[in-house]
Design a protein around this nucleic acid. Structure first.
Lengths: 153, 153
DNA sequence: CCATATAAGATATAATGTATCTTTTACACT
DNA sequence: AGTGTAAAAGATACATTATATCTTATATGG
């Protein structure tokens, strides 16, 4: 599934970088491609491992961290805080911004879905937060659960 | 604030352990007390450090992990997945169960509030999840934000 | 008092992440 | 093309969080 539009996603990112006047270097593209092609979220070290499997030019884990910082700044990649893993943004080819991101994470198969909670859901949460003394809350949310196919088994 | 009812909370936990036929050993009580008295969530190593400051009987970090497993099983303590820290349950003295727990975490001062989202909020989230192919989701939720006093500054 | 199970101690090591300094590369300008 | 500058990448060290495993101690029931 994820491979179908992966090349398009990457060239769209290249375009965005050009527009923003920043560089999508070979190394950065390597990391991005690894994440775009990945079936699931990957740890930084898994990304390095994958890059090293794909080419003979060794990718040090420390570079992966720096590159992830860059890709996250640009919102091409998200960090799953509850999993210590990284995943490519599911909106790489969209024109608009995606500062918001909510993730559903399957505890069984580790599948991750990036979704948009309704503003209704969000305002309900904000109300509860506000009552507890938190006036501003982050729109990044990670919800653990079971995906439908793992639910069945 | 947290110190006011801390001794009561601990003796309530002792009672619960007696009821459940499990042991709240000296070591376990040490860890629990440290968390109950803490102003904020603590890492496992911070807990060990604190225990070691409080007594001359050294608490190894590895014991802390084991004890945290126990305390979490019993729902006396929660793990904040986004922070890799631990916090005592805010319902230690309640009679009923608290499998559910939602946390507001201040990104600035690290203050944590344990709250109960309305079932309304929850059903809105469940609906969104279900549309994305997740039929069951965990009630533990960690929401990052700014508490009111950090908001002002 | 002894057997057994549970808890704790001890040690090693894995996994994840940050700090820092050096070297290389890209790019603008001459 | 040559050079200066800034960004990126490489390299190394180390900090933090966590798990695995084996041994020793302690509590409890018979």
């Amino acid at each position: 599934m994820r491979t179908v539009n992966s090349e398009k996603a990457i060239s769209d990112v290249e375009q965005k970088c050009a527009d923003r006047g920043i560089r999508l270097t070979r190394r950065r593209k390597e990391v991005l491609r690894t994440l775009v092609l990945a079936e699931s979220a990957l740890s930084a070290y898994e990304i390095a491992e994958q890059c090293n499997a794909d080419s003979n030019d060794p990718m040090p884990a420390m570079s992966v961290y720096r590159i992830l910082d860059f890709l996250r700044d640009q919102q091409f990649v998200h960090r799953l805080e509850t999993a210590n893993k990284y995943i490519s943004c599911s909106h790489l080819s969209c024109g608009h911004d995606h500062a918001q991101s909510q993730f559903l994470i399957c505890n069984e198969c580790r599948k991750v879905e990036e979704i948009d909670f309704s503003s209704e859901a969000f305002s309900v949460m904000e109300k509860a937060a506000s009552a507890a003394g938190f006036s501003s809350i982050s729109p990044q949310l990670e919800v653990r659960g079971l995906c439908d196919s793992c639910e069945i088994n």
